[in-house]
Nucleic acid binder design. Structure first.
Length: 267
DNA sequence: TTACAGGTCTTGT
DNA sequence: ACAAGACCTGTA
């Protein structure tokens, strides 16, 4: 049976390594608490996981796992298909990247949280991003579990309270203000396809092409999105000076991006 | 001290 | 249309 605080256990999913997911830069509220234990805060819930060789022990019950976390961890997607297409592509560097980060899955985060955290991420480092995100959460929830809703932080708070955001204060103030007055836009965004989402997202100040692609990939399930940041730019120049055929991978080019990105970052 | 961090906006040509 | 330069700030 499950040890200690864990209520539910499943066999360890394939292509699933929380160490890699936690350090892949997709989400800024996953904490590695040591001894193969991880705390994930998302969707106003906190999940503690213990990952062993064969089992995944969970602090939630079966229904919460089935209804929320399976989708969050993208566990309904068959990553063996992606693995096969990578080997069929026959590119040495991509295969090396995949073998290094094959435990990564593309998380499906809440769109609102993804918008805000990736607005913060621009021209910033992971340590500071996490600190700002944590400060935002604790502003309205002392436990830090819940991510603030748009109406929780009026725009002018960003002028008086220091979240460590620097010049990004203005971007968040505008986004919180707009969304608290027009909450429906997030629901509409969820229904849009990739191209429409990109247009809508980049219409906001502070969201450019890269941040919009991250929101599409990590928050809206548009796995064709291929965010090009400084690391991807660097690796493209280094390994693919003739260009990289993202079209080959079609609607999961974004997952390929994540293997390349992670290997460049951590490999 | 200078450079960098999962970029974007503004300005000058 | 495209290339610089500016931008908050903690860390190395």
């Amino acid at each position: 049976m499950c040890p200690g605080k864990f209520k539910y256990e499943i066999n360890r999913p394939d292509h699933f390594d929380l160490n890699q997911i936690a350090s892949s830069g997709q989400a800024f509220r996953i904490e590695d608490t040591g001894n193969d234990t991880f705390v994930i805060n998302a969707y106003d819930k906190s999940l503690t996981c213990l990952l062993t060789q064969n089992k995944l022990y969970l602090s939630c019950d079966k229904s919460e796992w089935d209804e929320l976390w399976i989708d969050y961890f993208d566990l309904n997607r068959d990553y063996n298909i992606i693995e096969k297409s990578i080997y069929d592509f026959k590119d040495e560097h991509l295969i090396k990247s995949f073998e290094f980060g094959k435990g990564i899955r593309i998380l499906k985060q809440h769109p609102w949280e993804t918008i805000i955290t990736f607005l913060i991420s621009q021209n910033n480092n992971i340590t500071r991003i996490k600190r700002s995100v944590n400060a935002l959460c604790r502003y309205t929830d002392p436990s830090g579990i819940c991510f603030p809703k748009a109406a929780d932080i009026p725009g002018d708070v960003f002028m008086t309270h220091d979240f460590g955001l620097g010049y990004r204060n203005r971007y968040l103030a505008e986004m919180f203000e707009y969304t608290s007055k027009n909450p429906a836009w997030i629901e509409e965004l969820k229904e849009m396809d990739y191209d429409s989402s990109m247009k809508r997202l980049t219409s906001f100040t502070g969201i450019g092409n890269k941040v919009a692609n991250c929101i599409c990939l990590f928050g809206l399930g548009h796995t064709e999105a291929f965010p090009i940041d400084t690391h991807v730019k660097k690796l493209m120049n280094k390994y693919y000076p003739e260009g990289f055929d993202t079209e080959y991978f079609g609607n999961f080019a974004g997952i390929i991006q994540q293997y390349l990105f992670y290997y460049e970052l951590k490999g």
